[in-house]
Design a protein around this nucleic acid. Structure first.
Lengths: 336, 336
DNA sequence: CTGAAAGCGCTTACAG
DNA sequence: CTGAAAGCGCTTACAG
């Protein structure tokens, strides 16, 4: 891999001390312009890049942000692009992303603790947040910097630390309002199986439910027995076979919505005509199905930039709630 | 975040020198059992964990493997779980994963170069390999350790470095054989749009094509104009509207296959009866569609463990070709 | 088996 | 503005 150029060699090449080279790198404003150019020329000539490890040891900053990869195949379509965007946002601040795996739940805390104890990361970005997530309270109690995508919905008290979230409840309520305006009064919900403790799951359902209640509509919900299209199709079948079949179905994710669409097709019901269907995430699936799936876009760029901002904020902002954007397609033409 | 315990404190606590503590950590066999226990007790009592940065500086090993995140939304369903499994495999060797983003193509090389120059990573895992991938040749020429998921298909010469791949050609050929045995003689292919330079794309198509040629079958292929279900549906429509409509369609991915299924349904053609359809990846989509999609499972665990093995191999093994496993479901009951 | 010494490649006050 | 000194927290030959 070749021998790396060190700061010492740059100093020798430029005929200055090592500290001056360091200053050129870290505090160029306080070095004489002539010296500056001379050193920069040496850096250029030798192709010098500072050794990050040595810098980290001296500054006591790993320059790395930890992010735990969850195992949720059904969320891949959203999480994979999210991770890409998040990584870019972190890189823009001159740091890098360390990804790791951990056991689910409270056991996983140990992995976070180790990473901090070893000084392998400076802070964490949390996602796949669950209700009363133990990670948040633990990290907050130790003073470990972090920012969470997703709220923890504590039974009492406030969110334990900085968070960014998309207003799933608000978006689903808006969908209900628009569907109602379009003449629907049987607006059902298809959600994840009850094992899913993801905070966003309940949030989305609550938005649908509260708005139905406010409008005096019936509240029928069914749950996919697995996080799959097929599970959603069965849930939709249950609803459609009921005494008051829905004319619109709000699904908690695109994958579930596509499952619902499949069930409609099987019954020769036309999406966007006989039954309107909406999804969530605006993933590749939403543009993939025939005519397109009306969905809620999560503003990934805004989410990730807010996360990075909160990571560095000194007790300023503590929570950022972003609106989901309803993207209309033919499965539910609610833009009319 | 609290002050970290250092090796120095452990030494003081145990009443030994710092080097002895270091030996307990890195070469326990050559320290007296009594001393060993004494030091271990001190480590335990203080909850000591070595500072990774300091260790890295001393050993000249970052302990980090670099992995570039590609932006390919259509591949999320496969890549997201793959990354999780890969990360676990890396962690089992005591190292961690650093993920990063880079421009596509030759421009991206600079990012790899920087990472190495800064000693931020020790090696790379490459994926999303394209034909004649410039990364491989560059890394190999610099002696940077890496292992590639996917071959680069050089026009001449050998693979530039250690690789692991799934035999896409072999799996597709096997699909054709089985479809032919089941009585099909119009076996078409639906592939990605031609912009996709992913090596695996051509590999899969070649397997289908060569086997069709060998069996004396016609070779009709159509391409999704975008990496989406909808694009695949249009490709399938072209084939089905042709003079000799296929009775079986081999698709290059699950997403494309699901698009094909949609087109069949639109035409009231029954998958697995009127037209047989196969996918690739055995992703969540394959089990998600009604009746299930016959697909080719990529052995993720074997792939990642081979990658990690090759990373550390001293010019031993240089290539690992793994078979894809055909998973039969009702869209193409080729197990009969 | 154990410890004093040097060093990994930087940065950070602090003199000059 | 520039440089000599100390230090970040480890590991690695090398004496003893």
């Amino acid at each position: 891999m070749g021998q790396a150029v060190t700061l010492r060699q740059v100093a020798a090449h430029a005929g200055v001390s090592r500290q001056t080279v360091s200053n050129v790198l870290n505090a160029p404003q306080r070095v004489d312009p002539v010296t500056l150019r001379k050193v920069q020329a040496a850096i250029e000539a030798l192709g010098y890049q500072p050794n990050r490890t040595a810098r980290s040891l001296a500054t006591r900053q790993a320059g790395l942000i930890g992010y735990c990869l969850a195992r949720m195949p059904g969320r891949s379509l959203f999480m994979d692009p999210f991770l890409h965007t998040l990584t870019e946002a972190i890189e823009e601040t001159g740091r890098r992303m360390l990804v790791f795996t951990a056991p689910e739940g409270a056991q996983g805390i140990e992995t976070y603790a180790d990473l901090i104890a070893q000084r392998a990361v400076d802070a964490f970005i949390l996602s796949d947040t669950v209700d009363e997530d133990p990670r948040h309270t633990w990290l907050a109690s130790r003073g470990v910097p972090f920012a969470s995508f997703g709220r923890t919905w504590p039974k009492q008290g406030e969110q334990p630390g900085p968070w960014v979230d998309v207003d799933g409840a608000g978006a689903c309520a808006e969908l209900v309002r628009r569907l109602h305006s379009a003449g629907h009064d049987q607006i059902a919900f298809v959600g994840w199986c009850q094992r899913v403790t993801m905070g966003a799951a309940k949030d989305r359902q609550r938005g649908w439910q509260d708005e139905c209640a406010r409008l005096g509509l019936s509240e029928q919900a069914a749950y996919a027995d697995s996080d799959s299209m097929d599970g959603a199709a069965r849930a939709a079948a249950t609803l459609l076979d009921g005494p008051t079949p829905p004319t619109a179905i709000v699904a908690a994710s695109d994958l579930l919505a596509v499952g619902v669409l499949g069930e409609l097709r099987r019954r020769k019901l036309r999406p966007g005509h006989d039954v309107w269907v909406t999804g969530f995430d605006d993933s590749v699936l939403a543009t993939s199905v025939e005519g397109g799936l009306t969905s809620v876009r999560q503003p990934t760029e805004e989410i990730t930039s807010a996360l990075v901002r909160l990571l560095d904020a000194e007790h300023g902002e503590s929570g950022v709630l972003l609106a989901g954007q309803i993207v209309c397609r033919s499965s539910a033409p609610v833009d009319l």
